[in-house]
Design a protein around this nucleic acid. Structure first.
Lengths: 108, 108
DNA sequence: ACTGCTACACGGTATCACCGAGTAGTGGAG
DNA sequence: CTCCACTACTCGGTGATACCGTGTAGCAGT
C-alpha cells in the first residue's frame, strides 16, 4: 500500500499511545510493531518524533534501561494524562470513522 | 465533538471527492453537506481550498452557472482522473481503518 | 577491522486543514 | 431605502503532523 502518510496524520500518534498503553515499551520495538501491523513504511524517525512529543506533552513516563543487545533503551509508559488522551483518541476515531463509513455506504 | 482537524487530514479531501462524485455540486452546498454529516466545524474556507486543489490537480470539471439566490456558483464534477482518485481513496481508507480497528480490538 | 542489527536524536521539508479578512449578489426587516 | 442576513467564492498566512536524511552509538559475529 503506497503513501498512507496523509491519512495517518492525527491517527499515528493515537496508535503509538495504544501500543504504549498495553505494556511499557520503547521506540525501536514500537516501530517494528507498527510495521507488522501493516504500516510498513512508518520509519523510526517518525516514531521518535511522536515519542518526543508525547514526552514534551507530559503523557508518558520515561525510564532508561540498558539493553544487552545494543544501546540503552528509553521505555515509555502511559501516565494518567496519557490514558485520558488515549481514551479521547478512540472516541474521536469512533466518531470520525463511523461517519466516513456512512458516507462511503451512500449515507447522507 | 471537538477539534477533529488533525484526524481529518488526508480524509476530508476524499469525502469531498465522494460528494462530488454523486452529483455535480458546488462549494457552499458541499460545506453544508459535510456539516450535516457530522463534521460541524468544517468551514467554507477549508472546502474551497480543497476544491481549488482538486481543480489544480485536474481531477474535476468546472462549470460556472448563475444562482438566482446569490452570486454565480462554480459546479464541480469528477472526470476520469477524479474517479480513479476516489477509488484509490476508498481503497486506502479501507486499508488504514481496518488496521486501526484491529489495533483497537486488541489485535497485534 | 568490517558489517549488520539495535537504538536514539535532530534539523529541515511537504502537505494539509484552518483562520481571517475581503469581495459580491440577492432579498427581507425596519 | 438602508441595513442586515444569507448565499457564494478567493486568497495569504498559520500550525500541526508525518517524513526524510543524516549522525551518533552499543553490541555481536565474521
Amino acid at each position: 500500500m503506497d503513501d498512507l502518510t496523509e491519512m495517518l496524520k492525527g491517527t499515528l500518534e493515537g496508535c503509538v499511545l495504544e501500543i504504549i498503553g498495553r505494556e511499557e515499551t520503547y521506540g525501536y520495538a514500537i516501530t517494528r510493531q507498527l510495521n507488522e501491523l501493516g504500516f510498513a513504511d512508518v520509519v523510526e524517525g517518525t516514531v521518535y518524533t511522536i515519542l518526543l512529543r508525547l514526552e514534551r506533552n507530559g503523557l508518558v513516563q520515561v525510564t532508561k534501561r540498558p539493553s544487552g543487545v545494543g544501546p540503552p533503551r528509553k521505555f515509555f509508559a502511559l501516565n494518567d494524562a496519557g490514558r485520558e488522551e488515549l481514551a479521547a483518541f478512540w472516541t474521536k476515531w469512533q466518531y470520525v470513522s463511523s461517519r466516513i463509513d456512512r458516507l462511503k455506504e451512500g449515507g447522507r
